[in-house]
Design a protein around this nucleic acid. Structure first.
Lengths: 224, 224
DNA sequence: CGTCTTATTGACGGTGCTCAACGGGTGTGG
DNA sequence: CCACACCCGTTGAGCACCGTCAATAAGACG
């Protein structure tokens, strides 16, 4: 999952599992905190997240970190470049994954429909990353966090009467490294949104969106 | 072209044109300043840049702009998402392009080798964009510009005795919108690099790298 | 040669980072 | 079950970097 400008194209809550004509490899399960792969590992499998949430990160030699994406149900993770993984990938919660052989993406190997579905996922990934560029390069801290919450609300928000509730499995520093901010700024911006009654912070990992329209406005820069 | 951490994998100056088994569609030529496509257009063709340079941009409703990438010889541009272009694409110079039918990427249509080559290009694109995330989110103005010049030097630099020369077909504001800065900051940072004798500015569009190692150091954050 | 655009430089201010202290929640061991 | 410690998140103060606004200089183009 990247932070993108919320599109007209509504995702209807549930995701479409990729259908394979072949006998399915066994579903993979992963405990919270364990790693699926590391940067530099050979790619043997791609995965579609079935339940839970993953975190993809990249490191600079000096320790600076960028969270590349969060992997939510429906997302495909593990696209290879030159046959290698280029991020670390850790489970933020207990996770279930549907594995697909790398060869299905790269050679089509006996399953044209699945090959095509994986290719389309890669192309959507490119487009989503382009949106994310705009956010990293051109948005303020408030716009970034508002955008983040909007996208999460669409993807994995739960209705709660008039409001909408989001569970955040990741830490504040994960959010900071995803948005190109510091934990302090993320924390301050949460407080700002809370004090303007746009969100309520049920607990550290649970946010309630009280004024969705205002949040959408902030994500597009309406305060300017 | 994205700004990435210069990799070990050297590109040997020239690029590899994608081979097609089919009779080639006619090479496309484009005048400097003309647009190849716009955001929202249907994708019929992908293109490999043969000579010249392209600029891919995206706009926010309020006018803020992000340059997504520059297209240099060897680069594939025009990957579709849901069948549509998601950037505007303008020629920065007179340009020659080798077109490929979208269907070759999406269905493989009679040319498996070309299909595979385009797919690999898409996967490399994803990896390069991940590097660019790190740069947009986590690097200072000096690191950004130094990284930019390093990558350009590798890709399209020309040897000039002991030094190396880069031609910059794009404007300062293109560079700014690519790196997530303002034109003023780009200009000031150029001046900074010039005053520390790391680069010389032959003219607005021509940069000479006098101390490549120092520039590499700055791009990785050695000043900190 | 004149006009218009683009780049540079300067002054200033604000957003977000740094450094630091504090608080609260969670987990562990007694 | 409680005590304690540790980690994570929050808050504060100060500052640096970079953005904003403005003036000037340098090119580009007709």
């Amino acid at each position: 999952m990247y932070v993108t400008i919320p599109s007209d194209q509504k995702v209807n809550g549930s995701f479409v599992p990729l259908a394979s004509a072949q006998p399915k490899p066994v579903e993979t399960r992963l405990k919270s905190g364990s790693y699926l792969y590391f940067e530099g590992d050979d790619v043997e499998w791609l995965y579609q997240v079935t339940s839970g949430a993953m975190r993809l990160t990249r490191l600079l030699p000096d320790g600076r970190r960028q969270v590349i994406a969060f992997g939510y149900p429906g997302d495909i993770i593990g696209f290879p470049a030159n046959g290698l993984h280029h991020t670390d990938c850790e489970a933020l919660t207990d996770v279930r994954l549907q594995p697909f052989r790398r060869s299905v993406l790269e050679t089509g190997e006996g399953d044209p429909a699945l090959h095509s579905a994986l290719l389309q996922a890669a192309l959507r990934e490119i487009s989503a990353m382009q949106d994310h560029f705009m956010m990293l390069g051109r948005k303020s801290a408030t716009e970034k966090l508002a955008s983040f919450l909007c996208v999460l609300s669409e993807r994995v928000g739960e209705d709660l009467g008039a409001y909408r509730q989001i569970h955040l499995p990741m830490s504040r520093s994960d959010i900071a490294d995803f948005l190109g901010l510091t934990t302090e700024t993320v924390s301050r911006t949460f407080t700002l949104l809370r004090k303007s009654k746009i969100i309520a912070i049920e607990n550290i990992h649970t946010i309630i969106i009280q004024r969705p329209t205002a949040l959408m406005g902030l994500s597009a820069g309406d305060d300017k």
